[in-house]
Design a protein around this nucleic acid. Structure first.
Length: 481
DNA sequence: GTAGGGTTAG
């Protein structure tokens, strides 16, 4: 059986879509007719579900049918909803193929499909049936949930485990990595209060907190603007004898630099060096970012030069694309447009490939330095290259065109691009609405709002603020209300 | 076998 499965799996993994396998004639009949005609693709999803339901509810699905099905599903465009996978997994569980569910789940993860709560529950059940819930299985699951924006689910799972441990004796004791995953997830969602609760809980359970725990918490506190609390956790860390890492220092430095506190940042940087911690590319880029934001481009440049000089700094600290992007922003801020082009050329010479941020920075920077026509030229070059334009780049240009009074051009670009391939987002609508309001073109604003509604784009707080500003300007108090 | 950091638009 094992050998058969391996052969089947390898044949599947080398195929693209439907490969006929003996014994799955009903499947191939169902799907070969609909492929690859794109019109019938839409109905594929619905037919798949119908078929899955029939097959799985009857309980008559065997392993190779399931594998064949699974392979078809992960190659479908668009990907079927997670519930379709769950139906398939449930059928396999009914037939006691627990290990196969786990291996299919691993394959699903490796192609970037994100399991939902139900998938996770199915998986837990499989692990339990196979007597495999141990701390690593759980830790992996919790980590996966946190990384896929399901921290709350991870937290529920954790709480369930804690309560079961206390009810039935210890089934599986959470360890430091498990706690760290949830604390980090909570911090990234801004729930620092809950993260601190877990922090106390783990200490209360005798689990030694480590540098990752502290760093995640400090980062979360910085993100919600609670600098004092972040600082006191850093001090506590030192007092407890938990060695910070370069990442810990980078998190703290980044917060200081983002707030323009360069003197404090410098002091911390010196402390870091004094204590023998090795700065890395991030450290340098963070400091450069801080200097750029306060307009001290000279100091940013000095750091950059020391990075760019081979052998000047240890451990392969070299400028990467983020370093270049950071310096480009700095140069645009102080209006040194000519130097940005030189730096761009230098990037190519040093084999650092520009990314979409680089292009956004250029379009935005040119527009904000009264060089809209240059931005337009740059944009056309991008348009004619194989580079895939992003909505951010287009938005910067449209914004620039409005501010330069080129309303017709902005309007044209909006229509041309959104008809062709770009789905406008709320930022794009806001830029357009703002530009049109300022010009008093209220009929156009109205048609945009309708367009927005049609496309299912939900207005946000900026949209309303923009509209209200315009109503107030035009003395339309009733509309404001 | 599971964990943490930096750049871009209204």
């Amino acid at each position: 059986m094992r050998a058969f499965k391996a052969t089947l799996l390898s044949s599947i993994s080398h195929s693209r879509v439907s490969i006929p396998i003996n014994g799955v004639s009903s499947l191939s009949k169902l799907f070969t007719t609909s492929h690859p005609d794109s019109k019938s693709k839409d109905s594929d999803g619905a037919r798949l579900r119908e078929f899955l339901h029939g097959k799985c509810k009857s309980g008559k699905i065997d392993l190779h049918e399931a594998f064949y099905f699974f392979d078809y599903m992960i190659h479908m465009q668009p990907t079927p909803p997670m519930s379709s996978f769950n139906i398939l997994f449930t059928a396999l569980v009914k037939n006691k193929h627990y290990g196969d569910v786990i291996s299919l789940h691993t394959r699903m993860n490796s192609v970037g499909l994100v399991p939902d709560l139900i998938t996770s529950n199915i998986l837990i059940n499989c692990c339990c049936k196979m007597s495999r819930p141990n701390v690593v299985t759980y830790g992996t699951l919790i980590h996966g949930l946190c990384r896929s924006d399901n921290t709350i689910v991870a937290l529920q799972l954790h709480e369930q485990m804690v309560s079961e441990n206390s009810k039935y004796g210890v089934i599986c004791k959470p360890n430091v990595v498990w706690y760290n995953s949830i604390i980090d997830g909570l911090c990234k969602d801004g729930f620092t209060g809950k993260a601190k609760e877990l922090f106390s809980e783990m200490k209360g359970n005798g689990i030694l907190v480590d540098a990752v725990t502290y760093t995640s918490l400090i980062h979360g506190l910085c993100c919600v603007g609670d600098w004092e609390e972040a600082k006191s956790h850093f001090i506590e860390m030192l007092n407890q004898g938990v060695q910070p890492t370069t990442v810990t220092f980078n998190v703290l430095l980044d917060e200081l630099c983002k707030n323009g506190k360069m003197d404090e940042a410098n002091k911390l940087y010196k402390l870091m060096i004094q204590r023998g911690f090795q700065p890395d590319t991030y450290t340098y880029t963070i400091l450069m970012d801080g200097y750029c934001l306060v307009g001290r481009i000279h100091e940013a440049k000095k750091l950059f030069v020391s990075m760019a000089n081979k052998g000047c700094l240890p451990n392969g600290i070299r400028p990467d694309v983020v370093t270049y992007n950071t310096l480009l922003i700095g140069l645009f801020i102080v209006g040194r447009v000519g130097d940005t082009r030189k730096l761009f050329d230098e990037m190519q010479v040093n084999d650092v490939a520009p990314d979409s941020c680089t292009f956004t920075i250029f379009i935005d920077g040119l527009c904000k330095n009264d060089c809209v026509l240059d931005a337009l030229k740059f944009f056309h070059t991008l348009e004619n290259s194989k580079f895939e334009l992003t909505i951010k780049i287009v938005n910067c240009l449209i914004d620039g065109l409005y501010k330069f009074g080129r309303i017709e051009m902005a309007w044209e670009l909006f229509h041309k691009l959104t008809e062709k391939f770009l789905v406008p987002n709320v930022v794009m609508y806001n830029i357009m609405i703002n530009g049109l309001c300022k010009e008093g073109k209220l009929e156009k604003v109205n048609s945009l709002l309708l367009n927005m509604e049609e496309k299912g784009c939900i207005p946000d707080v900026v949209t309303f603020a923009t509209l209200m500003r315009s109503f107030i300007k035009n003395n339309e108090k009733s509309k404001v209300v």
